[in-house]
Design a protein around this nucleic acid. Structure first.
Lengths: 219, 219
DNA sequence: CACAAAAGCGGAATCGCATTCCGGTTATCG
DNA sequence: CGATAACCGGAATGCGATTCCGCTTTTGTG
């Protein structure tokens, strides 16, 4: 699947009432998202926004497109996060700070930097983001804080992977992802390890993960 | 959500025709699973099995329960894998062998050891499995091949996490999970690192991950 | 073997949701 | 002010999973 739609002609030349409705829909959706995290009906969005379903659909071709749109602001925040990390005083620590704050942000907002990468509007952001990450990585490398063979993709995978843990355990068991991230970050360093700051995972934490993973792939 | 149902009274005292049908359904489902990987209809299962939908549902309260049932044999295989690793000649290497073969098996069969853990029938297997993992871990620790602070849960999380990558990228980009696993395994070791055997990840590999992750959590 | 329950059966009917359609409305522009 | 393209609302569709229920076998018994 290529990035369906989302190449939506931004919010240009919309009839003013249409524009207003678009905002209402977005606002309603955001509200619902905060309340139920994606588990809401398009009809609910419509009624809360005080418009008909058709209206929602003329503006957003699909529920997913709507969600993507919701994610955009958070996504811009991600870029900001990367740039903030880049500004960290000790260059060598920037990579770790970066990865940690990405995770932290994901945990706080529930937004993962997945599909969005692929949308037209996000492209410029994406390029900037990637460039920033390269720089951060270079800093860490210069400072001797990463194994020289670690590249941007490795970093991306780590973030993706921890993102999965965050999605799966969320509030229920933060330790799980924190502890794992500590271990992985240790693993990325060139030399020995420093001791992680987290407590070990416990049976009760683990349950959350077990329940979250279906035994068979569904797609 | 606690393990819904699945405490099904095994395949005991079923009217013989019922038992036959149950097998047919299971067989049909397995066929379909191999063909479409979970993306099939309960009606398809029914018709391929030559029974009515109702029949499927009387035996398996939900499509998911059916899938869980399908997974069982694979799951037993997982235990076998653990035990095989335990039998590896060099004790110190058992942990790594274990983790690697778990991933390998997941990649090959598409079965992840998630929800199943929680079912009544799986419990005895699970206990055995956990005990085995403890032993493997102890071996590695004695051999000085893992940081002393790594425990069973850490191992579990690594397997879960790599499982996520496998599900997401599958055939499309094996490098991703292999490379990541190499890095993580390196990270679990107490001392320095050995160089991984995989090639670095490339843009084209990465795409797979990007597309696989939705921007917003849906549950 | 006959017979009443118990256990099964098929598949139509429901339900929840996303997505599509279409006849009626309203900004906008000349 | 009139034409019309852009909008609207919300009923209708489509698709799956899951439920229901009247009819059929199996099974246990006498």
């Amino acid at each position: 699947m290529t990035s369906t739609a989302s190449a939506a002609p931004v919010d240009q030349k919309l009839r003013c009432d249409a524009a207003r409705n678009r905002e209402r829909v977005l606002a309603a959706a955001m509200e619902l998202y905060r309340e139920h995290g994606g588990a809401f009906t398009v009809e609910e969005v419509a009624s809360r926004a005080g418009v008909g379903i058709g209206t929602v659909y003329r503006r957003f071709p699909t529920k997913n497109a709507l969600l993507d749109e919701l994610a955009r602001p958070f996504f811009e925040q991600l870029l900001a996060t990367a740039q903030a990390a880049r500004a960290h005083p000790r260059p060598a620590e920037r990579l770790e700070v970066f990865i940690r704050s990405m995770a932290e942000q994901h945990a706080a907002t529930g937004v993962r930097s997945g599909r969005l990468w692929d949308t037209a509007l996000a492209r410029p952001l994406r390029d900037q983001y990637q460039r920033t990450v390269e720089l951060i990585l270079a800093d860490a490398r210069d400072g001797g804080r990463v194994r020289p063979d670690v590249d941007v993709y490795d970093v991306g995978v780590v973030i993706w992977t921890v993102g999965g843990l965050i999605d799966a355990t969320g509030r229920a068991a933060e330790v799980i992802w924190r502890r794992h991230l500590d271990l992985v970050l240790d693993g990325l360093r060139p030399g020995g390890h420093t001791s992680p700051t987290t407590r070990p995972i416990q049976q009760s934490d683990w349950e959350a993960l077990v329940v979250a993973a279906p035994a068979l792939r569904l797609g």
